[in-house]
Simulated scan of single mutants.
Amino acid sequence: MSVTANTPEASPSSRALPGPLSPGTHSLTIGGVTQRYHVHGTGPVCVAHPGGPGILWDYLRMPLLEEHLTMVYVEPIGTGAASRLPSHPHGYTRDRYSRFLEHLINRLGVPKVYLLGHSHGAFVAAHHAVHRAERLAGVVLYEGAPVTGLEHGAEAGRLVEKFAAEHANHPGLAEVLAAFGAMSDLSSDEETTAVARGVLPSYFADYWGDEERWAPFRDAVRAVFISGLDENLSPDTVDDRTALKALGIPALVVVGRHDVICGVRWSEELHDLIPDARLVVLEHSGHFGHLEEPERFDRAVFDFVSETGAGA
């Protein structure tokens, strides 16, 4: 697999401080596929992989963490036209994302980085931490789980039913449930974006209680259709329960108390599986604790980096 040099895209800040960790947008080409990433902040390096798969990266911006850390936000392959695989929308497996992460981390030129994965990105981060941990000082599994498949789906279904019961009289509930029902029939970027926005009220602890604040975020969410199948059209299923027991790097697990997709049950299980893992439950958050409780989220991650940072 060929790799071309990292090239910062023009901006005043990147011109002033050239290099793979200069502020701004960068790209590298791996086997003919372009991997972009975005650098903000200063301090120890933390590479952040967003969720989906297929949700565009910018929802994951963490301004408070950027005050302490050099945040490297990955723009996952498949979410931009130049980054699409020949097999698009198929073939975006965890291992492929992890191999692109390996090239990106090597390109950054620092001995160790922290890896933070949110939602589907947490599944990617766990895979990378298990199989390619050499350059990792630690991993943050933010709204993740050790498994996918029927068991994970049943738990999510239970939590969505709980959400529906709690909001049975809200006029927006029908739209949320219709979006969940449409998930299995997605086939385009437009449909994927519509469903991502449709389910979003259930992803917050209290979306409708502060809709004026969260509606602009909902309207800005963009997504690309990624099938979740490999090149042979087989599901890229996850069961990390055995592998995580041998994880040899520091780990922080973060979850919102009200998350319906990767709820507290799964983060508690991750905490129990991973040796010496830390667990932080954000009591007033759903799936987006970095937005709902930014100060608490920032403190949890920064404390983790500060206390494990000898190798960073």
Rank of each mutant, 00 (worst) to 15 (best):
T4Q: 13
S22R: 09
T29D: 08
Y37W: 10
Y37P: 12
H40D: 06
C46L: 15
V47E: 01
V47D: 02
W57C: 02
P63N: 08
T70R: 07
M71D: 01
V72I: 04
G78V: 01
R84Y: 13
S87F: 00
Y92P: 00
D95A: 14
L104E: 02
N106P: 01
S119Y: 01
S119D: 03
G121Y: 02
R132S: 12
R135M: 12
V140F: 00
Y142H: 15
A154F: 08
L159K: 14
A164W: 07
H167I: 03
A168I: 04
M183T: 08
D185G: 13
S187Y: 04
S188A: 06
W208S: 12
D210I: 06
F217C: 07
R218D: 06
A220P: 06
D230S: 10
N232D: 15
D239T: 12
D240C: 11
L247R: 00
A251M: 03
A251H: 03
V255S: 05
G256H: 04
V260C: 09
I261H: 06
E269L: 04
P275T: 08
D276C: 10
L279I: 09
V280P: 04
G289Y: 00
F297S: 05
R299D: 13
D303K: 12
F304I: 01
V305P: 00
